[in-house]
């Protein structure tokens, strides 16, 4: 089907992709529910963007770098980031590698070659360009993927990063996860042109893909990654999907938009994936049901387990500002404790 894998290998790869999408969806539903129950403070749901992220992830090597934003749970899950790591961050507990310092959805997974997540949108893009410069400088065979939403394409950072990556012919894949909405602003109010077309203005290669279809996304991403890896410069992928949920648990989309794609409808990326895999004869309804209940069981179990972990100790607040604590911070720490 894709001419990338053969026989059993293809089946395994596709089923693993589907499994990541299911686990992400169950994770998402769990956290949203837990937020409503007061067990989690905040969350930026990923529902609707699973196929985009898993499709691109499938095209990468483990040592490729990802400079992601705050809505990339499926991407992280598919690259093997344990659910525990995500839960510890969301809960801000003492097992969180960033010691509970950031609000939920701002993950750290350095050992899976993800960058630490920031809030200010698109500020990760210039960093990805610098990372790619370092890769080229050392003549490594790696690429950098940086992710962002449609809103980010209006920022000066997007422009700066696209231009710099093109000027220096760097191996960067700019993945615009166009979910149609930047909080309450629809994409047609964000920009007058299709996002992928902006690539041409920088001398980069631009391409649009149905981001609700993981196989289509995978094929386009594979081509983009091959291009970048072979030294042909940056690629801008516009993956069209839909933010089925709110921007975050703090907003109510009914205030600013009519209902678009809904969960379980024909355009739901998971429904599309199931249809694709059934057509290929890789999956049955029975397997689907089993995988879903298994994913739900894992998420429920891990959530209960991680919820028992205590918060970080207050004195950890003063660490990691600089390599060596300044006398000011030492003094402030002394006063507080």
């Amino acid at each position: 089907m894709t001419e990338v894998f053969n026989g059993q290998e293809e089946k395994d790869v596709f089923l693993r992709a589907y499994s990541s999408m299911i686990l992400s969806r169950m994770f998402d539903k769990k956290i949203v529910t837990a937020q409503r129950q007061g067990r989690v403070g905040f969350y930026t749901p990923t529902i609707g963007q699973e196929a985009t992220q898993v499709g691109v992830s499938m095209a990468l090597n483990p040592d490729d770098l990802v400079y992601e934003y705050y809505r990339d749970v499926p991407f992280m899950i598919h690259r093997g980031v344990p659910v525990e790591v995500l839960l510890d961050q969301i809960m801000g507990n003492s097992e969180d590698s960033a010691k509970g310092r950031q609000m939920p959805s701002h993950y750290n997974a350095k050992d899976h070659n993800f960058m630490s997540v920031q809030s200010p949108v698109a500020t990760n893009l210039p960093l990805a360009v610098g990372a790619a410069y370092a890769i080229k400088h050392r003549k490594e065979n790696r690429v950098v993927v940086t992710t962002f939403g449609d809103g980010s394409t209006s920022t000066p950072d997007f422009h700066a990063a696209m231009n710099l990556a093109s000027v220096y012919d760097l191996p960067v894949i700019f993945l615009c996860e166009n979910n149609q909405w930047a909080i309450s602003l629809p994409v047609e109010k964000q920009t007058k042109v299709e996002i992928w077309k902006k690539a041409e203005a920088y001398g980069a290669y631009g391409v649009k893909v149905d981001g609700n279809d993981f196989l289509e996304t995978f094929k386009v991403a594979k081509d983009a990654v091959d291009r970048a890896r072979s030294g042909k410069g940056p690629v801008l992928i516009e993956a069209i999907s839909y933010r089925i949920g709110p921007h975050s648990t703090s907003d109510d989309p009914s205030k600013y938009r009519a209902e678009g794609i809904t969960e379980g409808s024909e355009q739901d990326p998971i429904v599309i994936a199931e249809k694709r895999l059934k057509d290929l004869g890789y999956i049955t309804d029975e397997i689907i049901d089993r995988m879903k209940s298994e994913a739900k069981r894992i998420v429920d179990q891990k959530f209960d387990e991680r919820e028992k972990i205590p918060p970080p100790k207050p004195e950890t607040m003063y660490d990691d500002v600089y390599k060596e604590m300044t006398w000011m911070v030492k003094e402030e720490k002394g006063e507080a404790l």
Partner: peptide, 27 residues
């Protein structure tokens, strides 16, 4: 490649430097 004339974009110069610094370089 090591003494780099950049386009006119301060946020890009700084952002790119941060990315380099995160990846073993000394920008």
């Amino acid at each position: 490649d090591r003494v780099i004339d950049t386009p006119l974009v301060e946020l890009g110069i700084v952002g790119m430097s941060i990315g380099m610094a995160l990846n073993g370089m000394k920008p």
